[in-house]
Simulated scan of single mutants.
Amino acid sequence: MTSILVTGGTGTLGSAVSTRLRERGHEVRVLSRHSPPYAVDLRDGTGLDTAVEGVDAIVHCASTPRGGDDTAAALLLDAARRAGVPHLLYISIVGVDRLPLGYYGMKHRVERMIEEAGASGPGWTILRTTQFHDLVFRLVAGAARLPVLPLPAGVSIQPIDTGEVAGRLAELATGAPAGRVEDMGGPEIRPLGDLARAYLRARGRRRPVLPVRLAGKAYAGYRSGAHLTPGHVVGKVTFEQFLERRLR
């Protein structure tokens, strides 16, 4: 039986990864700030050595747009090196090397840290995916609270199901380190306004969708499709199917 540590294991993705690993018969250690017995704050690393001791792989799902992912990654890599962990798997985002966003830049920095540590640290695998259906749902649900639903104009999204990503991570975690694997994109590339209208239909609501043209390099990157991976249409679950399950 393989022992696998999942950081951010109580989050949306981490909990799904943990479930799929357990279904396959693996021992799973769930690491999060408030989840004993491996309640570890990756910002200071207290208790991290105990959490990684003896595991066969680490699936690093913990992340926050508030900053500090690089600090957490450095502590995790050091602990993995000391414990002799053979494999670290990191989940990243399509476009982190192309979109000038602070959070994306941080994710890309962590990718490079993991790659550079490979010579003396754990073997590594990095998987990039497109945005999750859950993220699109939160975005349009928040905007739909207004009488008019404002959305960035000219932006398309390729959303993917969290469960499908979790399944792929579980598969990769139990294999050998594979380096940067092929990106994983959702089944459809659709205008954001189209996804918003699908949400409104599913909720039985009516709102005018107002395209708003924004300025800045990040918005230009989204308009150009820097966050999409049309050559890697892997997911099967559409946004409508996700909505049916979510709102059931």
Rank of each mutant, 00 (worst) to 15 (best):
P150H: 06
R109K: 08
A178G: 01
P191R: 10
G121W: 02
T162D: 04
D69W: 10
D44R: 14
G118H: 14
I114L: 04
G8K: 00
V96Y: 10
V140Y: 04
F242W: 10
M184R: 12
T238I: 02
V209H: 03
G193Q: 12
H60W: 05
L21F: 07
P152T: 11
G204A: 02
V59I: 09
R109Q: 14
G216H: 03
D78F: 01
T10K: 01
P36Y: 05
M184S: 13
V237M: 00
L151V: 01
A178V: 09
P37G: 06
A178D: 02
R246S: 07
S3N: 09
A80W: 03
G142Q: 13
T46C: 11
E111A: 07
M106A: 15
A51F: 02
T162K: 00
A62L: 09
G167D: 11
S15H: 01
I91P: 12
G14R: 05
T50K: 03
R248N: 10
A117W: 08
E116S: 15
Y104N: 06
L101A: 14
L13H: 09
L139M: 13
V28A: 06
G121V: 09
A16E: 15
A16R: 05
A16Y: 08
T7E: 12
L139C: 03
F239T: 09
L101H: 09
R138G: 08
H34N: 15
V6T: 06
T2Q: 11
R81C: 06
L21S: 03
A117S: 11
M113L: 15
A80P: 12
G11N: 03
R207F: 00
A73W: 06
M106I: 14
T162M: 02
L21R: 00
H227T: 04
K217H: 13
W124N: 02
E53A: 15
I93L: 13
G45V: 12
H87C: 12
R205D: 14
K217G: 10
D56A: 14
G9V: 09
R22S: 10
V28E: 03
S120Y: 07
P191Q: 13
L135R: 04
T2K: 14
Y222S: 08
G216P: 01
R98T: 13
A62Y: 06
D161S: 11
